[in-house]
């Protein structure tokens, strides 16, 4: 099992902040690890790291990505193994304010080293289109574009798609990064009433194939409160199921996409109107 692997490098990106990149990175990483894959999740949000918090590993951070890049620590020293899943690992971001701490060569070296040891390298991109975001996507084979069904998020996703097609190593070689759309915080009842963009609207506008639809759910907040990816914290909850399905699609399985709907939730229709 050891070595001779060649990981798939996945970037989780969005342009806009607060749409669920870090939540999705943690949930998908844990789901893939649960499915038996060897996974490392990397936090690229230098200065504002949060993936450690989502994974419940914030008190175990000793060295970080920047330390490895600068040769202060060796890669195995910086990797944090998850306490629940032994094949899930985290490479945290540093809290330095120095934006130039991330270098292209440094990231290339770290990614190359990780490629031989893991099946999946999932890069959690910072928001925006600056250095951190372009470096997170730089060596990606696959991109997961996290989008909320809302105008500013869709617009920023479109911008990010443009960057994926021009600023990545693959794009510069004349190849394409394999792009997938992950719609998060979807509220089917709002979409049904014409108050929120529907999945079809978003797909038509962005024309990127759909990886999954994550319904808005209090389970996501609960999982982040306790520092556990939602796919581990409550694997049968609607968002966790949706993340598991997305993870299996990433692996190449064909799983029919079901758009969360309110058809069975007559109770919800009458009371509360809480999503899934």
């Amino acid at each position: 099992m050891k070595d001779k692997k060649s990981a798939r490098v996945v970037v989780v990106t969005s342009g806009k902040g607060g749409v669920g990149k870090t939540t999705s990175t943690a949930a998908l990483g844990a789901a893939l690890a649960h499915l038996g894959e060897k996974v490392v999740v990397i936090d690229f949000d230098v200065g504002l790291r949060n993936l450690d918090l989502m994974m419940g590993a914030e008190r175990r951070v000793v060295f970080d990505l920047i330390n490895v890049i600068h040769g202060v620590a060796k890669l195995p020293q910086a990797l944090i193994r998850d306490k629940r899943l032994e094949n899930l690992n985290l490479l945290p971001a540093s809290q330095t304010r120095d934006k130039d701490a991330l270098t292209e060569e440094g990231v290339a070296k770290v990614v190359a080293e990780l490629r031989s040891k893991f099946d999946w390298i999932i890069c959690d991109s910072p928001a925006g289109i600056e250095r951190g975001a372009t470096l997170a996507m730089r060596y990606a084979d696959t991109a997961i574009i996290v989008t909320n069904p809302e105008v500013s998020s869709v617009r920023d996703s479109d911008r990010i798609i443009g960057l994926l097609d021009s600023k990545t190593e693959k794009a510069e070689r004349g190849e394409f990064v394999d792009k997938h759309l992950l719609v998060t915080r979807y509220q089917p009842w709002r979409a049904a009433r014409g108050e929120m963009l529907t999945i079809d609207d978003v797909l038509e506008i962005l024309s990127v194939p759909l990886l999954g639809i994550i319904p808005e759910s209090e389970e996501v907040l609960r999982a982040s409160n306790v520092g556990s990816p939602v796919t581990l914290n409550n694997p049968v909850s609607p968002p966790a199921r949706a993340y598991f399905e997305a993870a299996r699609r990433l692996k190449g399985e064909t799983i029919p996409m079901h758009v969360p709907s309110e058809s069975r939730g007559i109770f919800n229709k009458l009371f509360g109107r809480k999503a899934a």
């Binding site: 809302e150 105008v151 869709v154 617009r155 479109d158 979409a191 009433r193 014409g194 108050e195 929120m196 963009l197 529907t198 609207d201 506008i205």
Partner: peptide
């Protein structure tokens, strides 16, 4: 008339993008 504002969002996005 259209009940929701989503169609407006969709149209604005299509033009803008």
């Amino acid at each position: 008339f259209s009940r929701g504002s989503a169609p407006i969002a969709r149209e604005r996005l299509q033009i803008l993008l």
